[in-house]
Amino acid sequence: MGYELQFFYVWQNLDKLGQGLLVSLELTGLANLIGLTAGFAIALMLRARMPVLRLPATALVELFRCTPVLIQVVWFFYCVPILFNLFVDPMVMGVLALGLNLAAFNAEGYRAAIQSVPREQYDACAALGLGGWSRVRHVVLPHALRAALPVLMTNGITIFQQSALVALVAIPDLMYEGKMLATETYRPIETYTVVAAIYFAISAPISLIVQRIEARFDRVQA
């Protein structure tokens, strides 16, 4: 192969990629804000006895879990404005699509974590007269949050990577800026390699931290 790698143009335009990265991080941060809070609310709805609460939550979770994220983003961007006559900033739509997707996955994580609180812990609470909000606040929640933390973090960085899909609807994120740069400089290999490296550099440490936490939980289980 006679191709000669030249990173010069990429280095020269690193600031553009930096701006794109900021947009990606903003998307990720806001999506996580929605995902962590709405996800918990949806998890509580999933556990509710009343069908009026449970069924919509189930439908929402399954819809987001059983369709490609790519279609979700496109749908929010092209269909929601027409269907609901709602024209807002593309960024808002991106955050909504990613945030609700994350909420659906986090809800499942929260739900499993709440379920994983051992029955014995409830027995111990009852024997100690610990009930109601005290029990939720001091026993169930700490237990469930710990159990859910690795899943929530993993989902959180997954959405960082999925956020690259919004480039398709012209939100100037890292992927979008990378695409522009690749076209401008005729250096797609170098550009996309650097873009991939940036995604990796942000995700890998968090992934490692998750593994550490999981290993620690395994040791502490007793």
Binding site: D123, A124, L128, L130, H138, V220, A222
Partner: peptide
Amino acid sequence: FQHYTLFPHLDILRNLTLAPVKT
């Protein structure tokens, strides 16, 4: 109980004081 059922996220002192203080 047979399997202790201590609260794993609380230290020993807090395991003892949680219920008396809260309830």
